[in-house]
């Protein structure tokens, strides 16, 4: 029985590998097939208590793109919900550094083209009965756009035996995409060739984060991708390059949030620098909105709740 399952699994893995090598069949005319989503794990087996990576590999037809967690001026962030056996926990989704595309009408989007892997660290429970195969599933939905936009969804699955974990054939894909994650920088910390600080400025009801970045070597281009949260609306306003110094201005406002007790002040922005030699680096800067902004009486959110209360 065990052998038979193992064989099934091997066949499945072989099929996935074959698919990955050949590339999914994409017809340029078929909008719905513009994006494919495949579930991958970086392990051959699930080992009790041993964290592994589970991700969705998206492949897009030429000129099509899907969206980052902040889609920008338009679009919709890609969504993945992992459906896991009982007792398994999933960390938040990891998002490689996106690219920026500017569409006619000065509409900025953040996302991915070609191929991207979005994944999470998964931890199985500390004990697991062996001699079983466990089903893993991802419920995936995305908006893909080229000249027009198409909603896509898929629920790719994968079955892994419980046993000793070894790197799978897909482990190299994970390693490659981990290299595309921005380096995380807490406030006041410096990273590889970079240091940064920031200050908040209030202009009327508007709040602005001014991020001052210092590079060991002057970059030729710096882009900024701010994240949005349920609480905060963050817009990239401007980036100024001045040799080894870059200034990034972000406009920050409270979203008309739903729950006033859950106003998280933390957010982040990813910056990506490019140097003359063509090399690139990306950093994830963690920011916290000031308490004055979060409790501002002129904010949308609080006025909004007043109205809701009146109605009830």
């Amino acid at each position: 029985m065990f052998k038979w399952r193992k064989l099934q699994l091997m066949l499945l893995l072989t099929a996935i590998q074959a698919m990955m090598m050949a590339g999914p069949a994409i017809s340029a005319d078929d909008d719905a097939a513009a994006v494919t989503a495949t579930l991958l794990a970086d392990t051959t087996a699930i080992q009790a208590g041993t964290t592994f990576r589970l991700g969705v590999l998206f492949r897009m037809a030429p000129e099509w793109h899907i969206y980052w967690l902040n889609p920008g001026d338009a679009g919709l962030s890609t969504a993945i919900e992992f459906v896991l056996p009982e007792g398994f926990t999933a960390e938040p989704l990891r998002w490689p550094t996106p690219i920026r595309f500017v569409q006619p009408g000065d509409i900025t989007g953040y996302g991915y083209d070609g191929e991207v892997l979005l994944w999470a660290d998964i931890t199985p429970p500390p004990t697991l009965p062996t001699d079983q195969t466990l089903p893993l599933k991802a419920e995936v939905s995305w908006l893909s756009c080229k000249d027009k936009c198409v909603m896509g969804q898929a629920a790719p699955t994968l079955a892994l035996p419980v046993g000793e974990a070894r790197p799978s054939a897909a482990a190299a894909t994970f390693t490659r995409w981990m290299g595309r994650l921005p380096e995380r920088l807490a406030p006041g910390t410096s990273g590889d060739g970079v240091s940064w600080q920031m200050r908040w400025r209030q202009e009327g009801a508007e709040w602005r984060a001014e991020v001052d970045v210092r590079w060991d070597m002057a970059p030729v281009a710096v882009e900024c991708y701010p994240a949005v949260t349920d609480t905060l609306l963050v817009r990239h306003r401007a980036t100024t390059l001045d040799g080894p110094r870059s200034r990034i201005d972000l406009d920050v406002a409270l979203q008309p949030a739903v729950d006033p007790t859950d106003l998280a002040a933390d957010f982040f922005a990813v910056i990506r620098a490019r140097w003359a030699a063509g090399d690139e680096k990306a950093f994830q800067l963690f920011l916290t909105a000031p308490p004055e902004l979060m409790t501002s009486s002129s904010s949308h959110a609080f006025l909004h709740f007043t109205i809701l209360e009146e109605k009830q």
């Binding site: 679009g75 569409q103 006619p104 009408g105 509409i107 908006l143 027009k148 406002a253 979203q255 949308h300």
Partner: peptide, 29 residues
């Protein structure tokens, strides 16, 4: 709906700006 409710009553619109969502407008290149 909320904004129209306020406007027809002669009140000020409370939430004046939100983040629009959807496809990008397909402007000519």
């Amino acid at each position: 709906d909320s904004a129209l409710q306020q406007l027809v009553k002669g009140a000020e619109v409370e939430v004046t700006e939100t983040r629009p969502y959807g496809c990008s407008v397909k402007y000519k290149k």
